[in-house]
Every structure is written in C-alpha cells, then in structure tokens.
C-alpha cells in the first residue's frame, strides 16, 4: 500500500490548529467603553477589573451579571475593564494584566477560577479579589468568595410549587450530584413539603460526570417522563441539562395553564427564552447585588477575606405576575424573608 503521509499530516494539523484555536490569549475588549485611563496605581482612582470564565460579558449568565455590578461603578468615576477568557489556560495571565496595572479590585467569575484567583492574590497582597461562586476552604486575607446558599433559593421555589400544584406531584431535573445541586434539591423538597405535605417530589440527577451539565436532550426526556406521570411543576437545576427540562415543559400541552417550570441561578426568563411559556420564576442567586456590595466594601476598606454569603430569592414572575394568586405571592415573600433572617432553616 502506498503511503500518502501528507494525507495524514494535513487533517491532523488541521485538527490541532482548530483545537488550538481556543488558545489565543484573552483580549481586552472595549466592551465597557471606558476610556478614562486613570492611573490605577494612584490611590485616588478606583480601578476594578473583571475576568470572565470562558464566556462573554453579554452571556446573559454569570459573567454578565457580575459585569453589570462592576460597570455600575463607572458612574462614580471608577475605571472598569473586563477581560473575556477564551481558554482556561489563560486565567492566570488575564488576572495578571490587571494586577500589573495595580488595579484596586479584581473580580473573577466562576468556580473554575478558584485556584487561579487564590494564587494571584497571594502574589499581589495589595489587590482585593472577589471570587464569584468560589467557596474558600481556607482564608486568604485579600480574597473574598461570593457564595450563595442554594438550599434557600430551592426552598423558595419548592414552596411556590407546593402552593400552586394541582396534581400534588412536582419534579426536579438536576445536573451532576454535587453539593450545589444537592442543596437545590434539598431546599426544593423541604420547601414544597412545608407548603403542602401531600406533595411528592420526583428527583433525578444526571448519571454521567463529564456532560452532566450540558446534556439538554437528556433533561428534556426526563421532564417529558415526569410530566407524563402527572407532575405539573418542573424545576430545572443543572445548567444546560436543566434548561432542556424546562424547555420541554414549555412545549407540553397546558404549558403556562396547568404545567409550570422554574429556572435556576439567574432570571432565566432572559437566558432561556424558549421556556417562557411555562417559566413562572427562577430560583435566583442575586449575583449582581452581591458583587456590588463587596465592591462597596472594597471602596470603604471594610472587606474581609473568606466567604461572603450573597442573597438568594425568586426572580420576577414576568408574564405570570397576574396569574399567580395574591395570597400565594404574599406567603412566598414571607418565606423568603424567613429564610433571610434565618427563622426558616433548611436542614
């Protein structure tokens, strides 16, 4: 057999080139439109940098929510700048671009950047770091992890579902079984039972590890099965997998009339528009508020290292505002207050 080495080399090189595409260093974007090039090393100029996880600042998700908080400081004369990470290999380099210019605060978004953030913080003790969704196992004095009690958000969502369900059956489709999803599920179950002891909760975790959060087709199949078995509330709590579940509920007959769904993490009315026909609310982590609070603390010097627990709650009801009975809303609001002042605790 005649060997044609170029035919092996060409596609292989192509493959390497393409898979390497992600390797380009994160570019500083001019997304903020900030041209006020104040000298960040001066004490008078407040400079805040934001490093996204692999994603963009208009991703309608975590990155955008955090960026909105940072951007809000522009009005008060601060210099703000985002760097969009293209490849996880660049986390450290992207953070370095800010620390080299002596920024006062650097916000890093996403659990995956936990280590990179801590390492950078140890090397730059004068810069304050805010790690969104980064739980700190041990304290680094200049790193504050902004974390959220998922069980509280899940509890509020479950409470709403428990009050509104007609079939007394509700379901939740989760990603991989890890502490955040377990917390959501735990809260959801306890909340729904607190509202209505007759409720039974169907709960499934995605079986595989690698793609557990990016398998919408599986999530949709699970939601379909739960709906066929009489569930009238589907809570999708697992990234893309959960989004598949609420997207399926939106397609079911009776969506928005007798079948409802609940989103997760952010107000998914905006992030998962295909779920709008059934999306009553989302179990929300108040990311923008939390980031703002911490940046204010950086400004007045009161920020502490360790973990900062942000607020959770339910996203606006949007089109369902008029369809949800007023007494249900009142009860849910009371529960959210109770969770905040810790008179209600999820065990």
């Amino acid at each position: 057999m005649k060997a044609k080495p170029f035919l092996i080399a060409a596609p292989a090189a192509l493959a390497l080139a393409l898979s390497g595409c992600g390797g380009s260093t994160g570019n500083t974007t001019s997304g903020g439109g900030n041209t006020a090039s104040g000298d960040c090393s001066s004490a008078d100029v407040f400079c805040v940098g934001l490093v996204t996880d692999t994603g963009t600042i208009d991703d309608k998700s975590f990155n955008q929510a955090a960026w909105e908080a940072v951007k809000s400081f522009e009005g008060s004369g601060a210099t703000v700048k985002p760097i969009e990470t293209k490849d996880p290999k660049d986390y450290a380099n992207n953070i370095k671009q800010f620390t080299d210019q002596k920024y006062d605060a650097v916000v890093t978004v996403g659990f995956l950047m936990t280590e990179a953030t801590r390492t950078a913080a140890e090397a730059n003790p004068n810069t304050k770091f805010i790690g969104v969704d980064q739980f700190q196992e041990s304290d680094v004095p200049n790193v504050t992890g902004l974390v959220f009690p998922e069980q509280n958000a899940g509890y509020a969502a479950g409470y709403l579902a428990g009050l509104m369900t007609k079939t007394n059956k509700i379901g939740v489709v989760l990603g991989q079984e890890i502490p955040p999803t377990q917390n959501y599920a735990k809260g959801y179950e306890q909340g729904s039972k607190a509202a209505n002891p007759k409720v039974s909760v169907a709960k499934v975790y995605h079986p595989a590890g690698d793609n557990a959060f990016s398998d919408p087709a599986w999530g949709a199949g699970e939601a379909k099965k739960m709906l066929a078995q009489g569930a009238d509330f589907i809570f999708g709590a697992g990234g893309g997998t959960g989004n598949g579940a609420i997207g399926e509920a939106a397609k079911a007959s009776g969506a928005g009339e007798s079948v409802y769904c609940i989103g997760v993490d952010l107000d998914q009315w905006n992030t998962v528009p295909e779920a709008q026909p059934c999306l009553v609310t989302s179990a929300e982590k108040k990311l923008t508020d939390g980031t703002k609070t911490l940046l204010d603390q950086v400004k007045d010097g009161s920020i502490k290292g360790g973990n900062f627990f942000g607020k959770t709650g339910l996203a606006p009801y949007h089109d369902f505002d008029s369809k949800i009975p007023a007494d249900v809303k009142t009860k849910v609001d009371e529960v959210i207050k109770g969770l905040e002042d810790e008179s209600i605790k999820v065990s």
């Binding site: 192509l14 992600g22 998700s61």
Partner: peptide, 30 residues
Amino acid sequence: GQLDQIIAGVVINIIATGITSFYFESGKTI
C-alpha cells in the same frame, strides 16, 4: 487518501469539538 480510518474518525471528533466550542455563541434562540 487511504488515511487510517480510526485516525480519521478521531480527527473528526477533535475538529467537531474545536469548531463547535470556538464558534459557539450563547444567547441565540430559534
């Protein structure tokens, strides 16, 4: 081209992951 069939398949999988991740844009809807 008589490229090894297993290698060609692996190349396809790598290219596919690369292309679809790189050109992925969030927030699009149908």
